[in-house]
Every structure is written in structure tokens, then in C-alpha cells.
Amino acid sequence: MNRLLLLVVLFFHALSAQAHKPSDSYLNFSVDGKIISGQWDIALRDLDFAIGLDTNGDAQITWGEVKAKQREIDAYAMARLQLQSDGLVCPTRVSDHLIDDHTDGAYVVLRFESVCAQPVTTLQTRYGLFFDIDPQHKGLLQLQYQGVSSTAIFSPEKATQQFSLTRPSRIGQFLDYAREGVWHIWIGYDHILFLLALLLPAVVIRQRKTWQAVDAFKPAFWSVLKIVTAFTLAHSITLTLATLGVISLPSRWVESTIAASVVIAALNNIYPLFRERRWMMAFLFGLIHGFGFASVLSDLGLPQSALVLALVGFNVGVETGQLAIVAAFLPVAFYLRHTLLYRKVILLGGSMLIALLAAGWLVERAFDMKFLPF
């Protein structure tokens, strides 16, 4: 039993190591004939780890410290990005530096221009930022050409990609954003832990202040279905409203409330408040989680010519990723429901660890501070 408890602790520690938004940078290319105008948003925390921006060691990166390192930042970044047109390298020059705030902190913004030898018809891009120090890092690209946008993700396995500058099909754009939705639910650990905290009691029922295994699969299935449906409906509503600009909420408030929702959902498994009405909690807090998804979608950029298509595609991707998690969880949980391992270690112990981890996120996000060692 002690070994099993240790495995659960190690599992949640592994999640906590990536509890905040994973390392991403954001590239935007706009192609016009021979000219590629680019913007590259790179997290200051990542650059600090790579080349050391915090020169006075006070854990605060100032504009002065960034400005002093501009040439080093340019050299480091542009050495890890190469653009080619039809096999010929397009020389690149950084033209401007800015600082911008994303939902997960401050980013340096590099604006640059690449001039190719002839009008670009096929663009080859090699991306290698931070891959040597963080194999989980991703580069998120939005490519704009003749008023149409397409997206791509660079990773160590897909560091070099080629783009044909023809008008993309509607189905291609839909699939691009659906893929982004799947990816972002899988790396959204606070969303995943909220969902898992709600699903953990689905295969048991509380009787006489203890959790007892359900007798059949049907009640467990219906419990999961109600929770997933409520969560999906709620975050789809606010994702749409936020993306279309109808409602806007402060990102710190949204992220703090998301962390609080994970705490409440986990503690509900230890001291039940909502009991068998967990679907109500899924809906209420799902409205806030939708704003979190919207911030990710806004970072990716939305093509105005296919706004609805991109929004629907991203939402379908989120739901697909979510259903994959449920499909992996439910059969295993149902199989283990009679065991002390499930009722004591996974349900109660796991819920306690989720609550503690999310409480740390809540304090960090609410007070804009960093104290957890991960």
C-alpha cells in the first residue's frame, strides 16, 4: 500500500512540474511577394533560463535588463530560426523590440523582416528555440498569406516544416484548429485535474459517510455523461462569447478562479458539498474554464475570414481531447472501484494531493507570486 501511495504522489508531482502553462513561443509570418514580415513572442522566463536576463539576481526582470541584452537575445533567437524559399535562405533582420503581457507572464516581442530572392511560393521553416534545454517546448506559428491564416506547431520531432502558399481549404483550417484544441486540453493540467476530481467519485456512491462501489456500469456511465456534458456546454458558451469579444474578464481573475475550482472539486470528494450534483459544479465552474480556453485561442490568433470555422474546430478539438481522457479513465476506475487502492489511495489520497497542488496555484495566481519549487 505504501508503494502504491508513493506512485500516486510521484504521479501528481510529475504533473506539478508542469502545472503552469508549458513553454511556448508565438510566431506570426505575413508573406507578401518576396517579403516575410514576422513577429516572435518569447517568454522572458524562458530567455532568462537560457541566457540569463536577471543580471542583479533580484528575481525581477526589468525593461533595462532586457534592453541591455537585446543583441544577445537577437543572436540567440535568430540562430534558431531559418526561413527558406524554394531552397534558398531568406536573410532575416530584427527591426524592433517590445514587451507584451500574455496570460502566463511577460514576453519579449521581436519584429523582423526576411527578404527572399524571389516571390515566395513554398516556405521552409527550421525552428530550434529551447529544444536543447526544454524538449517540451513548442513553437506556435500563424502564417498569413493573401488574407488567409494557417497554423502549425514546431516541436523537436517536427522542427522543420514546409508550407505551400496556396489558399488552404476550409477543411484544412478546421483540422488545424481542431488539432490545436486537442493539444491544449492535454497540456492544460488545471483543466484536466478539475475534470478528474469530478470524475473520481463516478464509480462509487457515498453511504453512511463512506464511499462504496457502485453495483453496475450504467450509473457510473450516466454520472460521467452528466458531468462531461455540463462542463462541455458551459465552457463552450464562454469560449464563444470571449472569443467573439462579447465578454472579457481579467486573466488573473480567471486563472485564480480556475485554480479555486480545482480545490473545491477535490475537497468535495473528502467533505461532500455537492454530493451527487457534481454536474452542477461542472457547469458553474466550466463557465470560467471557458475563458481560460479563450485566452489560449486568442494567443494562437484567429483568421477573420474563417472565424467561426476556427472557433468550432478548436472547440471540437478540446472536446475530443477531453473525451480521450474520459475514455482512458472510466474503464480503469470501474475495474478498481471495489479495492481499497481506489477508494482510499486514488479517490481520497489523490483528491487531497489535487487540492494541495491547486491551492498552491491559487495563491500564486491571486497574488502574482512564485513560491512553489516547480
Rank of each mutant, 00 (worst) to 15 (best):
A75Y: 13
G128D: 07
D101N: 11
Y342I: 01
L53N: 12
F367V: 03
Y271A: 10
V246G: 02
M281S: 12
V182R: 00
M1G: 10
E255M: 08
K218I: 00
L47H: 10
V66N: 11
L47T: 01
I270Q: 05
L225N: 15
A220N: 01
L143F: 04
I171A: 13
K138W: 01
I99A: 11
M352A: 15
K69H: 14
I192Y: 00
A17S: 11
V31F: 09
Y189W: 15
Y335V: 03
D86T: 12
A77I: 09
F334G: 02
Q124D: 15
G290S: 09
S236E: 11
F154H: 05
T210V: 12
L199E: 03
V228S: 03
V182E: 01
I247Y: 00
S150F: 02
A197R: 08
G350N: 11
Q118D: 14
T151N: 15
V228G: 06
R179T: 04
F217W: 07
T257I: 13
F367Y: 13
L123C: 01
I185A: 08
V246E: 01
G172H: 11
L330F: 12
D104C: 08
R111G: 12
I205W: 02
R45N: 15
Q212K: 10
L249T: 10
A17E: 14
A79N: 06
